[in-house]
Nucleic acid binder design. Structure first.
Length: 1201
RNA sequence: GGGCGUAUAGCUCAGUUGGCUAGAGCGCAGCUCUGAUAAAGCUGAGGUCCUUGGUUCGAAUCCAAGUACGCCCA
């Protein structure tokens, strides 16, 4: 028999019980063996960065992953269940730097790259273990490594001492930790993949080799945002994170025009240090320029006319810089106009205007032409293609041109309309310089200091304030300084050190992306979800606009780029004969001439691989590996090959490629993971002339993106201000099932408002598997109160309602010894309401299957919520009496009710198992396993329900909906007539179409009961009780009569009564309007009732009802009896009696009407309240004064002996 | 600066190919119901469907311009 179910719903404790059950009974393993060898469903996991513990925001994507995997597993598919950890890259380096207190790149070199890399590996393994535990708590079923083994490995990295771990598949492995780590996630062991594995790195080599063979790898220069302290270039993403409002000294400077006495270009910049490397000056040919003479020294200046009086930063001065905290800095004066500057210097005179195009070609002298770097042929570093030019020889006015969207680069506004161009110091400058064949002069070393060739500047750091002052002094000496001012602006800073970034020319390695069309063709074969986001369009937009893929980074921890170069510095790196890409470790060993022995036994990482030298297979020259590491998106993008065994297990790869499904949080991923997957797959599958079809190159078939998790106010959650919610805090306070429901019901195209963390309210939590409650996370962060209205609502509306329905069923089934295995009452013989809920169940099953298959859990859960509500608040509510009836073995109606509710609950468990795996497991264990030992051991081992078409009856839903309309109208009428529901009323009359009438009369018991009305009468019409109003149906009349619609509407309201009555019988009526006649058919009008006489009436959906409001003495007496019963029940509830406990009722009523009612309805009262007696007695202290009818009486109960 | 998206009740959001008195949940007020419920039902208050113009018999919906916010790119 079922266990008793408490209605005290603490789901979190239940989740722990279920986790222990799954673990102890190895349910997940049983699921895997059950489906082994069946049709595969391939999921490819986007790796989570194993660098920190999971926050609550990570759980959204992981809930999708788990829910869809569980769904397909219940459909008998074989799955891989491989989680992925992203392990390499700057993210990890940054955390390790913090941990080890290493501020700069030099500090790392001093420590030793090997020690640093060990630390990175340790950290990754440590947090992989942590995230594994957190994921298990979420109910995320994956082929997890034992967290303890991962910790053992973490501790063992860096030592040769062998360690022993247990692999997920159950074998035991003993070796040096590093050697085990290198092989984690391989098919023989199982477990999560780690992007630092040798297999993953080597498969990227395979990819890069293919790129190399197609001539797509090159070494190039680019100007990148650079941090001097970090010694590294930053991506656009990283730059965006570090934008800050700051104040710089900006400068107006003049460039003397060659061959024009005392005439100058007026130039402005906020980065004075870049003037050292000026090469050209750009104008907009269409723009109008002014020729102006300063009175002080009669100098003539050229600059954009509009800028003369332009109020620079006027808007920012008033409104700030676009964020609340970015207000105009105090103490910084409002900026002057250029006119004002000249006025203050003695005044000016405008000599004339000219077009920018007239300036183009003019040559000038640069401000720092005395520096050796300006004289260097080919620029600095030397460009062998431009050896005939120097910085100085390039000094001329050029056309700034337009960007690829057609916007002019040089515009009037903040500056002077003449832009100083330093191709070695600016991104746009660099592109322009390339186009125009200008040399670049790159002044900065890795630490942002000036290199040799810059005279007194050499050694100075570009971002030092003194350097700017030095520039001003030098300019002043040369008579080129016009004005210096404080200039506030948003400037990129290093998000790690807070350093100001500079733009620095770096040499990096790139993949030429001129094969983007191939990738676009592949992107088009993919199903991008959710549709509303139009992921394909976003991806294509990126693919269209992206630049070549920069794959190198001058750091330590990451993919060792397999690029070997000749050591001869005279060699042009862009010549692909002069560098070589190695495609595998095997190839490396074959080409190796030096260093293999030191490398052997290590993973292909820095520093160990750095010493391996090779001989170029053609030239025979000795080559050294470049020290750069790879872009981490290579690591994540290769997983469709590396983790599926492309190089090692071809059969396995064929079985699982392409993945059926991937899902990831999408901001950013269109140019990160999605991009990397698509492009790498396109390259890997490239087959030359007879290239594969785009369809065969796709790495996955369907992609589901989702947005971000926000706090309750819709704002981002930050670790720094204590608003970011730790996973544990949410899991143990809100409950994982609730969280999962919330995530799966959310529209993935919209940010999810999760909840609020209260950093000032600490809590103590019991973690799963821990022996005692915790006050902080493993990392020592405080645990704080988390509240969430959306979660509370989700729990209340869905989980609690479901649970209480379940509790109701179980607790009555126990009293009645209901046996679910007994013979079933044929569904056809069950009452209409039973067939109704069973039919709705079939619809829900169909919806669940359709929506899960379409990767739209939101659509399923919307219907599931509605179903649970129908089940609880309509089916159970309307059928309670069938469960209460006293035991009678021959009561087939009662049996039908039990069987119906049982079926619904069990099926619902299975339907919802992928969504809320814990609650459904608890229910299933009690409902099914308790009574049927032969049933599958877990709800997750069951087959997903199939629709039984025989039970599907859509007509039933419509009929029930009609009954619900009648009930709703009835409740409304009672309210209007001021009659409480306990007061019985004599009659309800209803009129509607014969078809509807019949449907409603089928459910007459339900209606009578719910509305407490003695008699329900169906009538042809209610003409004697009401009058009718006719309103136009614009949707049907509009197309027919168009412009006359207004007149017809007006006419309808003033027609003589009765004229339109035939419409109610389905007969068309001709209506005269403005001399013309229009024929109206029944669907052209809406008919409603307005007036009632002695009855209350209402209508909706073509159903009219009227209820009699007249009360007879008999009805009043019955009302009193019902009140009395209700009050006794309330006392039972207050006394917390078991539902089967019998009682004695005592009262001290004196009112004659009450006494008469108690006498007449005595049997009924005792039966309803399980009372052995109903007696009058002198009142006692414990009696409660209750309202019965219109009078108060003292009432109390006692337990029956 | 360019591109994309969004704007509907106090809050969070639905609103199908343009058509009925613009809806739901939460919140608020009143009433009702309650031998599973932490529920539920009914009624009510609360709307410039961002603004302006256009197309149309008819616009929350389509078009144009503008405003605000968000994202992406520069």
């Amino acid at each position: 028999m079922f266990d008793k179910v408490s209605t005290d719903t603490s789901f979190v404790a239940g989740e722990h019980t279920v986790l222990a059950f799954w673990r102890d009974q190895q349910i997940f393993d049983k699921l895997r063996s059950q489906n082994r060898g069946r049709q595969p469903w391939s999921f490819l996991d986007g790796p989570i960065t194993a660098n920190n513990p999971m926050g609550v925001h990570h759980a959204w994507g992981r809930t999708y992953k788990d829910a869809y995997q569980r769904f397909w597993a219940m459909n008998g598919r074989e799955l891989r269940y491989q989680n992925g950890f992203d392990c390499q890259g700057l993210w990890v380096e940054v955390e390790v730097e913090k941990e080890m207190n290493l501020g700069t790149k030099n500090a790392i070199s001093a420590l030793g790259i090997d020690q640093f890399v060990y630390s990175c590996k340790k950290r990754v393994l440590k947090f992989a273990a942590r995230q594994t535990e957190q994921s298990v708590r979420l109910g995320y079923w994956m082929d997890w490594d034992d967290p303890q083994s991962l910790r053992t490995l973490s501790a063992g990295v860096g030592s040769d001492k062998p360690v022993t771990i247990k692999t997920p598949i159950g074998t035991s492995v003993t070796d040096a930790a590093e050697k085990i780590v290198a092989k984690l996630g391989n098919p023989e062991w199982g477990g999560s993949y780690f992007t630092f594995s040798t297999e993953n790195n080597e498969t990227i080599w395979t990819f890069l080799k293919k790129c190399f063979q197609r001539g797509k790898i090159y070494r190039g220069h680019d100007v990148m945002p650079w941090s001097g302290r970090g010694g590294s270039a930053y991506s656009q993403m990283e730059v965006a994170e570090g934008r800050k409002l700051t104040t710089h000294k900006s400068v107006f400077v003049r460039f003397p025009l060659r061959g024009r006495e005392n005439e100058y270009l007026l130039v402005w910049t906020t980065t004075p240090w870049t003037l050292t490397s000026n090469v050209a000056a750009a104008v907009n040919p269409q723009l109008e320029y002014v020729k102006l003479q300063a009175k002080r020294d009669s100098a003539v200046y050229y600059f954009a006319k509009e800028n003369l009086e332009f109020q620079r930063l006027a808007k920012e001065f008033k409104e700030g810089f676009g964020r609340p905290e970015w207000t105009w800095p105090t103490g910084v004066p409002k900026l002057k106009t250029i006119a004002q500057i000249f006025k203050e210097q003695g005044g000016y005179e405008v000599l004339g205007t000219l077009k920018g195009s007239e300036l183009i070609g003019l040559e000038y002298n640069g401000p720092f032409d005395d520096l050796p770097a300006q004289h260097q042929p080919g620029g600095l570093p030397k460009d062998d293609n431009l050896l005939s030019a120097t910085g100085i020889s390039c000094h001329r006015v050029v056309d700034g041109g337009r960007d690829n969207e057609g916007t002019a680069l040089v515009v009037a506004g903040e500056g002077t309309g003449i832009v100083h161009i330093a191709p070695g110091c600016g991104d746009v400058d660099h592109v322009l310089g390339k186009t125009l064949g200008l040399v670049a002069i790159a002044p900065l070393a890795e630490d942002s200091s000036f290199v040799e060739g810059f005279g007194a500047f050499t050694g100075k750091v570009a971002t030092d304030r003194q350097t700017a002052e030095f520039v001003f002094e030098e300019l002043k000496k040369k008579g080129l300084l016009v004005n210096v001012e404080e200039y506030p602006h948003i400037y990129p800073h290093c998000w790690r050190t807070g350093d100001e970034l500079v733009f620095r020319l770096v040499d990096e390695w790139f993949i030429k992306m001129d094969w983007r069309q191939e990738i676009m063709d592949v992107a088009k074969t993919i199903n991008w979800l959710p549709e509303s986001v139009d992921g394909l369009a976003r991806e294509l937009e990126w693919l269209t606009n992206m630049r070549d893929w920069m794959i190198s980074k001058k750091r330590f921890w990451g993919l060792a780029l397999p690029i070997w170069v000749d050591q001869d510095p005279s060699i042009e790196w862009s010549d692909s004969n002069k560098f070589f890409v190695v495609g595998s470790l095997k190839e490396l060993k074959e080409l190796e001439v030096e260093g293999w022995n030191d490398f052997d036994g290590h993973t292909p990482h820095r520093p160990w691989i750095d010493g391996v030298k090779i001989k170029h297979p053609q030239t025979g020259k000795v080559m050294t590996r470049i020290p750069d590491v790879g872009n981490p998106w290579l690591d994540a993008g290769i997983v469709a090959f590396s983790t599926l065994g492309f190089n090692t297990h071809p059969e396995m790869w064929k079985k699982w490629y392409p993945a059926d499904f991937v899902t990831e949080c999408f901001p950013g991923q269109f140019r990160n993971w999605f991009y990397a997957l698509l492009s790498m797959s396109t390259m890997m599958r490239y087959e030359g002339e007879a290239d594969a079809e785009p369809l065969d190159k796709r790495p996955f078939k369907t992609l589901l993106g989702h947005r971000l998790v926000m706090n309750e106010q819709g704002q981002p959650m930050h670790k720094s201000d204590g608003t970011a919610i730790w996973f544990e805090e949410a899991a143990e306070q809100i409950g994982v099932d609730t969280i999962r429901w919330m995530y799966l019901a959310q529209n993935p195209a919209q940010d999810l408002r999760f909840g609020t963390r209260h950093p000032d309210k600490p809590v103590t939590l019991q973690f799963f598997g821990a022996d005692k409650p915790a006050v902080q996370t493993d990392e020592g962060a405080a645990l704080c109160l988390v509240t969430s209205k959306p979660a509370d609502e989700t729990r209340r509306q869905n989980l609690i309602t479901l649970w209480n329905t379940y509790a109701f069923f179980v607790n009555y089934a126990r009293l009645d010894d209901f046996n679910p295995l007994a013979e079933q009452v044929p569904v056809g013989e069950r009452p209409e309401i039973d067939r109704w809920i069973l039919s709705n169940l079939q619809s829900l099953i169909a919806t669940a299957r359709d929506e899960f298959s379409a990767y739209n859990t939101q659509g399923f859960l919307k219907e599931a919520s509605r179903f649970i509500d129908d089940l609880s608040n309509w089916y159970v509510r309307r059928n309670r009496r069938r469960f209460w009836r006293s035991r009678d073995a021959g009561d087939r109606d009662k049996l039908a009710a039990y069987q119906t509710l049982y079926t619904v609950l069990v099926q619902l468990c299975k339907l919802l198992a992928p969504v809320i795996p814990f609650v459904t497991e608890q229910m299933y264990q009690n409902l099914v396993r308790k009574v049927d030992a032969s049933a599958p051991e877990s709800v997750h081992l069951c087959e997903y329900p199939q629709v039984d078409p025989a039970q599907l009856d859509e007509g039933l839903s419509e009929r029930m909906a009609l009954a619900q309309v009648v009930v709703k109208l009835g409740h409304g009428l009672r309210e209007k007539a001021n009659q409480r529901v306990r007061q019985p009323l004599a009659e309800l009359r209803l009129a509607s179409s014969p078809h509807q009438r019949a449907a409603i009369m089928n459910l007459v018991d339900v209606i009578r009961d719910e509305l407490n009305i003695k008699q329900i009468t169906a009538c042809e019409d209610l003409d004697e009780l009401v009058t009718y109003v006719y309103k136009p149906n614009q949707k049907s009349l509009g197309p027919k009569y168009g412009k006359s619609l207004g007149a017809i509407s007006k006419a309808l309201s003033i027609l003589p009564p009765g004229l339109l009555d035939p419409l109610r019988k389905g007969v068309p009526v001709a209506v005269p309007v403005d001399g013309a006649e229009f024929v109206l058919t029944p669907e052209d009008v809406f008919i409603s009732t307005v007036q009632a006489a002695d009855w209350a009436c209402a209508d909706e959906d073509g159903v009219q009802i009227a209820i009699s409001t007249k009360l007879t003495p008999e009805l009043l007496q019955e009302g009193i009896a019902r009140d009395f019963v209700r009050q006794v029940q309330q006392l039972r509830k207050e006394a917390d009696l078991e539902i089967e406990q019998r009682i004695q009722i005592l009262h001290a009523a004196t009112d004659a009407d009450v006494l008469a009612a108690l006498k007449f309805w005595g049997d009924y009262i005792r039966e309803e309240t399980l009372a052995d007696s109903l007696e009058a007695a002198p009142t006692v202290a414990s009696a409660k004064s209750v309202l019965v009818g219109a009078v108060e009486i003292p009432l109390w109960i006692e337990r029956a002996k």
